[in-house]
Design a protein around this nucleic acid. Structure first.
Lengths: 132, 132
DNA sequence: AATAAAAACAGTAATCATTACTATTTTTAA
DNA sequence: TTAAAAATAGTAATGATTACTGTTTTTATT
């Protein structure tokens, strides 16, 4: 709807996000992009993350920790959240798309999709416990 | 760990929540419980919702709208969120617990569970569109 | 190249949900 | 009856995010 104009700041944000596999928050993105552009404002980071999400160039993730995370990998995949350290990790797993039809079976409305994340203890935190 | 003492406020919150199937937010609970106890404070509502969750008497729901919802039905079930009106509706569906093992198959950590909600357009909002 | 409207910006203020703090009151075991 | 623990009301603080504003940048058109 709204014509998009080039912005170096948006480009920097996208570029940074593409280098990361750990799904950083807006503030982490802000802190890092400041290395390239010390004058960028946090509001600009938030606005561009929203624009990039709207354009389908990145995904906004909600993993239940109260702050949004962002992912430049827009291919369908799922995430694991460590309840110990909070890290968000990509999962390689078979499709579970069938759960949408399972849910739709007895529902009088239109189900368009689902939001799923898994939680538990990551490998690193599991090891940490064994050694202490 | 911490001994729990009786509180009329906590009782009122639980009682109110048990009358509702629409998974209200803390503020909606606060507004309603004030009918019974006009002096109750919002902080008390938040604190008791956390205590009740910790005790497993209620569940805290995250449906991606930025505010927590609460559910006195602690039996395992899933929710649908309408992207039009924001309503949160219980789903009656077959178990999808198997997705946890699907996720665990190729993951080097301990997966303890998953968080899933479905989204789309509820029956009411679908009808509303047809008539306009 | 010059222009001007739209978009984006930096910086700051405001919002909203939630948590923390504090002095007082309530609960409950002894 | 007592006193320690827990809970409270009221208020202040926090943290993530959005809104506002005057200025700058982008870009299509002259």
């Amino acid at each position: 709807m709204t014509a998009r104009k080039y912005s170096r700041q948006r480009e920097l944000i996208k570029e940074f996000l593409m280098t990361r596999k750990d799904h950083p928050t807006a503030d982490v993105i802000y802190q890092n992009v400041r290395n390239e552009n010390p004058n960028i404002s946090l509001g600009t980071v938030y606005r561009n993350l929203t624009l990039l999400s709207e354009d389908g160039e990145i995904n906004r993730l909600n993993v239940g920790d109260g702050t949004d995370h962002f992912d430049a990998d827009t291919s369908p995949h799922y995430h694991f959240v460590c309840t110990e350290c909070g890290s968000v990790i990509d999962l390689e797993m078979d499709s579970i798309e069938s759960i949408t039809s399972t849910a739709a079976a007895n529902f009088d409305g239109r189900i368009e999709g689902h939001m799923t994340y898994f939680y538990g203890t990551c490998q690193h935190c599991t090891r940490f416990h064994e050694h202490s």
